[in-house]
């Protein structure tokens, strides 16, 4: 046990801190494998049970791509909402997270680490969806016939993760506002209607008119439309981009407000 050699030793860089926090977050998640496995295979199971049995969809490359894009976004949205909403609420109740605030690191490393962890697990959920889509549907025909360039796939993965941003903010908002038990309930109540009305489980052309109109105002619908449009090589609609940007700004502001409010209550 020794005391620091000198007062002028350099502090670890932000990159070092982000890496350490990310590693801790990932390890903590991996230690509860059931949670990881269920969130990872959930969208793949939905694809397997709801899409694969429909021959009309499976035989049509564009319909297949649409279904894969919808469920990919479904996976991203659930990873973001659940990882953030419930994770943040649990951390708030934990004296360990207060202790972490006494370490020589600002709020940035842990916030970025949490986002990176959420993205990693969202990405893991995308892999089985892509594999099933490639093997059990005709989606891959779109690439073999030259209808779509190969880089549509990595581009789409990035777009899907970016389309998850409003849900990341929504998760933060819920997490800073609710206790962990309430956060679980609220996240579930918010998640399924958003996913369904956003057209992630059923394509919106099957919606009745009123639902379709309502749906167009939702962040999940805008995210779904952009994801599908990018993955099927169609043009991205400006309205969808405006809708998702507006929601991201709004939910981001709410998340920031909830965070300030929470900090103000606990750490004035």
């Amino acid at each position: 046990m020794t005391i620091s050699a000198g007062p002028h030793s350099a502090a670890p860089s932000q990159a070092t801190l982000i890496r350490a926090h990310t590693k801790a977050h990932i390890l903590e998640q991996l230690r509860i494998p059931v949670a990881v496995i269920s969130s990872t295979i959930f969208p793949a199971l939905a694809l397997l049970f709801f899409v694969i049995p429909q021959q009309a969809t499976v035989q049509d490359p564009v319909a297949s791509l649409t279904a894969v894009a919808q469920l990919a976004l479904f996976g991203v949205m659930s990873a973001f909402l659940f990882n953030y909403g419930i994770g943040v609420a649990e951390d708030r109740a934990n004296p360990w997270s207060s202790y972490l605030r006494t370490l020589p690191a600002g709020p940035l490393p842990s916030t970025i680490a949490r986002a990176l962890t959420a993205m990693l697990f969202a990405f893991l959920a995308l892999i089985p969806v892509l594999v099933l889509g490639a093997t059990l549907t005709t989606a891959s025909d779109a690439f073999t016939t030259g209808m779509l360039p190969w880089w549509t796939v990595p581009l789409s993965v990035v777009v899907w993760l970016l389309c998850g941003l409003p849900f990341l903010a929504l998760g933060l908002f819920i997490g800073y506002l609710c206790t962990s038990k309430v956060a679980i309930a609220v996240t579930q109540v918010v998640f399924f209607p958003l996913a369904f009305a956003g057209g992630m489980l059923l394509p919106p052309f099957l919606f009745p008119d009123w639902l379709n109109t309502l749906s167009l105002f939702l962040p999940s619908r805008a995210a779904r439309d952009i994801s599908v449009q990018v993955f099927t090589g169609g043009p991205v609609e400006v309205l969808s981009l405006l809708t998702i940007t507006a929601w991201t700004v709004l939910l981001g502001a709410l998340a920031l407000w909830a965070n300030r409010r929470d900090q103000g209550r606990r750490f004035r």
């Binding site: 030793s9 670890p12 350490a20 590693k23 801790a24 390890l27 903590e28 934990n94």
Partner: peptide, 21 residues
């Protein structure tokens, strides 16, 4: 309050990463 699922060495490494030496 300790991080329940982290190993002891991982927890020490994590906190140690915040310091220069």
């Amino acid at each position: 309050s300790v991080p329940q699922t982290l190993r002891v060495s991982e927890t020490v490494d994590f906190v140690a990463a915040h310091y220069p030496d």
